[in-house]
Design a protein around this nucleic acid. Structure first.
Lengths: 175, 175
DNA sequence: CACAAGATGAGAATGCTTTGCATTTCCTTG
DNA sequence: CAAGGAAATGCAAAGCATTCTCATCTTGTG
């Protein structure tokens, strides 16, 4: 019998150990996996072991991640970095993850499901990213989209500056 | 007498020819140059020939630009690509330019002075970038910033999707 | 269970961006 | 106006995230 590794984690900390589990596919398919499978089928692509692992690792993380991070989580599971890079755009197109911010020359993603649209507040000093809800902004943006006849896909609102903590410590430097 | 090249263009199309002009520094200093000089002084840095050329080339362009573009505009003026790359972050820190979008693996900037805050609408198909005013969104963002005690620096609103033109031609593909 | 289309891993390649270093330019001080 | 030290520059050589190549392996179908 052919079986594949499937993760159904909500807790990122137990990820590594649970990655060892070898469950039957049909019993554990998650919503997002079904969504991904549907999307792939429509494109004549397949839901493979690697893609499933990458998808589940993404959803197990409740923080921003980049290709390298996913790859390191899947270390020892024989998933190459190239495949991670090949899979990320698929997940984006499938509407499962989105590019959150780009900082330090790396693209950082986040999963979307059950994750309301939000803005990222990036502190230029300590690099911390804070999130806030943007539901109040959405109607205005959608209205503008309609005016432009623009089909919305992703909305990215990134605000950079200095967070409360850092602007306090900058106020009294090296003293 | 020491003199340097200074540009004071509003018309990008005559850039190349005007780059030949050799004007006296003190007669032609622009607002943005003064601002840059002040910024550099504060950091113990100098407003040099190369930096001045790069700054002026940036402000002569009324479109997005990347390092390569500035470098090609300044071809023959003995400004190295490395210096362009070294200067861009300075201009950003000085509040004179900002990172507009990153597409095709390149960072594209735009100058800020007299340029009201706006959103970028990037068509994923034809890569066209449209700009719209975001003055209606600003109060909401500033209010949120106050709540977070966050010192605003840059606000980036990038919206990707499909523009009117492309969604029309996608509707009847290869037929 | 064979087959064709897709997918993968490994590593080479790509291309933007950064860095090291010897040389030049800049500004201040006599 | 010359000297001197700090900064800046050009050039070429990395760095580094991401993409590509290609031989091999998987996947779902008939």
């Amino acid at each position: 019998m052919q079986s594949i590794l499937i993760l159904c984690l909500t807790d990122p900390y137990s990820l590594k150990s649970l990655l060892q589990m070898n469950l039957n596919k049909d019993n554990t398919m998650q919503d997002y996996e079904l969504q991904f499978k549907k999307f792939l089928l429509k494109r004549g692509l397949k839901l493979t072991r690697s893609r499933s692992l990458i998808l589940n690792a993404s959803f197990a993380l409740h923080e921003h991640f980049d290709a390298e991070k996913l790859h390191s989580i899947l270390k020892g599971m024989n998933v190459s970095l190239a495949t991670v890079y090949r899979t990320l755009p698929l997940l984006v197109d499938a509407g499962l993850i989105q590019l959150a911010v780009r900082s330090d020359g790396r693209d950082r993603y986040e999963h979307i499901l059950g994750h309301p649209k939000h803005a990222h507040w990036l502190c230029e000093n300590c690099k911390t990213v804070t999130e806030t809800n943007i539901s109040s902004l959405l109607p205005l943006i959608e209205q503008e989209a309609k005016a432009l006849n623009f089909t919305l896909d992703q909305i990215t609102i990134n605000i950079s500056g200095t967070c409360w903590k850092c602007s306090n410590s900058e106020a009294n430097p090296q003293s």
